[in-house]
Structure formats: C-alpha cells, structure tokens
Amino acid sequence: MVDGNIVKLGNLLDDNFYLAHMSGMKQNKVKWLDEIETGGMNYYSSTEEHVDIIELTHNSAVLVGQSRVDADIHGLRNTWSLELTLHLEKNVDQWKILYITAKPY
C-alpha cells in the first residue's frame, strides 16, 4: 500500500474483496487499487501499534490492528489512528483478505 505496489497488494486480496472506509463508503478491490495507482489515495506510512488475532481456524481468521496511517485521500493529507479489522480465508495454502473494515480509535 505504502509502496504503491498494486500487483503485490492485489494478490493478497480476494476477487470479491472490499474495504469499508471509516466514512462508511465501501470500495471494491478494483476501485481501491485504481485509486492507489492513479494517486487518488497516496499512503506515505503505516505504523502498527497493536495487532490481535480475534479468531483463527484452519481456514479462516479475523485480525484487528491499530495503526497510525499517514495518507493523502483525495487531496486531504492527515495521519489517522485507524482500527482495521481484516477477515481472511485460506484456500488450499494461500490466505486471502476477504474484506477490511476501518474505523478511528
């Protein structure tokens, strides 16, 4: 995300992935990656402050992490304290992120 490597980021995401932003807007995989590629969303840094595994089975997981994210989102640069909840699923031997919800903390 910070490196702008949408190929690598895209490989981590399920085809039906979406990001639920703290504003409530849901953005699918293609649109989010396009925003990063075209500069609508520029991520400068992300510093993890805390991560918890909330649920873990052999083929699913829920992670909650708190991060300080320095980003320019559509011309508004700020450092946000975000709590991200990631829902993951394992297919064969590869984990994919199904969706992420973001909220301030």
Rank of each mutant, 00 (worst) to 15 (best):
V2K: 04
V2M: 00
V2Y: 00
V2I: 13
G4F: 01
G4Y: 01
G4C: 01
N5C: 01
N5R: 02
I6P: 03
V7I: 13
K8G: 13
L9E: 12
L9P: 08
G10M: 04
G10P: 14
N11T: 08
L12P: 06
L12G: 10
D14I: 02
D14A: 14
F17M: 02
F17T: 03
L19T: 00
L19R: 05
L19P: 01
A20E: 15
S23Q: 09
S23F: 08
G24F: 08
G24I: 11
M25E: 14
K26M: 10
K26I: 07
Q27D: 05
N28G: 11
V30I: 13
V30Q: 12
K31S: 15
W32Q: 09
W32N: 08
W32R: 07
L33S: 03
D34Q: 15
D34V: 01
E35K: 07
E35G: 00
E35I: 00
I36S: 01
I36N: 00
T38V: 09
T38S: 13
G39I: 00
M41Q: 11
Y43N: 07
Y44G: 00
S45A: 15
S46M: 14
S46A: 15
T47A: 12
H50V: 08
H50I: 02
V51G: 00
D52F: 09
D52A: 08
I53C: 14
I53A: 07
I54C: 01
L56E: 12
L56P: 01
T57H: 10
T57Q: 11
N59M: 02
N59W: 02
S60T: 13
A61L: 06
A61V: 07
V62Q: 08
V64W: 02
V64Q: 14
G65M: 10
G65Y: 07
G65A: 15
G65P: 11
G65K: 10
Q66Y: 14
Q66V: 15
S67G: 06
R68Y: 13
D70P: 04
D72W: 06
D72Y: 06
I73R: 09
H74K: 14
G75W: 05
L76S: 10
L76K: 11
L76H: 09
R77L: 05
R77W: 01
N78F: 12
T79V: 13
T79W: 00
W80D: 08
S81A: 11
E83G: 04
L84A: 15
T85E: 07
T85R: 10
L86C: 09
L88K: 01
K90E: 06
K90C: 09
K90F: 02
N91H: 13
V92Y: 09
D93I: 03
Q94L: 07
W95S: 12
I97F: 00
L98Q: 13
Y99N: 14
I100W: 01
I100F: 03
I100V: 15
A102H: 03
A102K: 07
A102Q: 14
K103G: 14
K103H: 12
K103W: 04
P104Y: 05
Y105R: 12
Y105G: 06
